[in-house]
Amino acid sequence: MKSSKLVTSFSEAVSDIQDGATLIVGGFGLCGIPEHSIQALKEQGTKDLTVVSNNCGVDDWGLGLLLANKQIKKMVSSYVGENKIFEQQFLSGELEVELTPQGTLAERIRAGGAGIPGFYTATGIGTPIAEGKEVKEFDGKTYLLERGIVGDFALVKAWKADTLGNLVYRKTSRNFNPLAAMAGKITIAEVEEIVEAGELNPDEIHTPGIYVQRILVGTNYQKRIERRTVVHA
């Protein structure tokens, strides 16, 4: 089957991402990040981006590349402790940051993709992140209102795709990727291998292709490891 979702180059895949766009980017730390799409965005130089992603890479890899290149205006993340450039830009006021508890962030993205504009959670009650948020009691317990997130684009990394954009992830590189895929108006999925439609077992597909608009294969994935912890045999 001929697929209209296949894109041949990363520069083409990200070419219509405009200055000021909101991007939802998959990955946890450096695990399962869309390496090549980030690199292409760096080369394109798109600015004033709002990036929703659990982390912001490290100084010289992942989303840290866009930060170093001053392409990011605002980050929505749960943990940004691995990045010195982040610290500098945040303290100087160049970079706006919305810290969001990790589970709340995941659910905000999932909800956005599922057409749910907001939801109540107990996470954050009594803490600084509750400031200014609507609260409501359910069954005697207090919850606060969190908003769903939708992105102009989502950048995701999967292990395998078929030509219709059905995606399968590998191990813990799944993390935020399926949620990001749901919440992008245009979702760009980069993968290690593309197979013909029908070759993936329908029972084993993690992200149905309906969420994915563009697919392309990346080569020579670096898959950097942040903390190599091993035992010696």
Binding site: E82, T172, I225, R227, V230, H232, A233
Partner: peptide
């Protein structure tokens, strides 16, 4: 599970502290 044996670490398999497991 425990940390992997040296040489068998998998970048797609980490814990919340970003350690290979």
């Amino acid at each position: 599970g425990p940390y992997p044996i040296d040489g068998q670490e998998d970048p797609d398999l980490i814990n919340a502290g970003k350690e290979t497991i």
